[in-house]
Design a protein around this nucleic acid. Structure first.
Lengths: 123, 123
DNA sequence: TGCTTTCTTCTACATATGTAGTATATTTTA
DNA sequence: TAAAATATACTACATATGTAGAAGAAAGCA
């Protein structure tokens, strides 16, 4: 499932707190994001159509919750990026990250720790 | 500079071999990608408008070359993904990669080596 | 119970993106 | 040099995306 930029914002808010009404969602969007209430409703309607979000009525008010899991959305976004920009390989992306000096020293440290932990965990 | 999916394909071909005419480009697109010649021309025109590609005439034929550097395109694509899907942090993305078991054992090994190399290189 | 607030559903519209056809100019070639 | 092949510039059109207004239904309140 592919999400547009605006859809990510809605989904992020929804993943953070759900179920939620459109009004509640509005409160949780980053303040830079100033959308009209109806804009949020439109996005939600579209996400419901796509099957990324579930909707049920509470009186006359719609309550929404994510159906698409964040994990999955993330996975497919990364997949798309890798296919598009890194010849389909994770390694080229990672080495880009290294070489382009995008990792701070502390990030590198954290990453190493993750690798070690992961290694002991998984075999 | 943000590239659409189709634009990435053109740019990938152009980065691989340039300068190139539209006709030459056509030859280098992945075979799954079967676009009409004019489709390629349209994409190129749009990329020239955006400043991602340079064009100059060779007789009546346009010869194109990338102006946008692959590095930069990659950087901004990653940036966008991270902001959108990983709370703006590289670490969350990397840990996602770890935990979601998207890395094979060998990829992890390579990654570790890169980290080590990088560390000694850069301080 | 009428006014105000809040929801909902529809509709709208601009820009972006994917994809390509047409008409016309140019170049190559028989 | 006239026909064939190419290239170019324009135009077109569907779907996606960002953004929101309008009209009407419901709910809350004075």
């Amino acid at each position: 499932m592919k999400l547009s930029n605006a859809e990510w914002q809605i989904m992020n808010a929804l993943w953070a707190h759900h179920p939620a009404t459109a009004r509640q969602l509005a409160g949780q969007l980053p303040q830079e994001t100033k959308w009209a209430y109806t804009t949020i409703k439109t996005m939600l309607t579209r996400l419901v159509e796509k099957g990324a979000v579930g909707e049920h009525k509470q009186g006359n008010t719609s309550v929404y919750e994510p159906l698409l899991e964040r994990k999955n959305a993330r996975g497919s976004a990364i997949r798309t990026l890798i296919d598009q920009a890194f010849e389909g390989g994770l390694a080229p992306m990672l080495s880009f990250l290294m070489e382009d000096n995008r990792l701070s020293k502390s990030e590198r440290k954290v990453l190493k720790e993750m690798l070690d932990k992961n290694e002991t965990n998984k075999e």
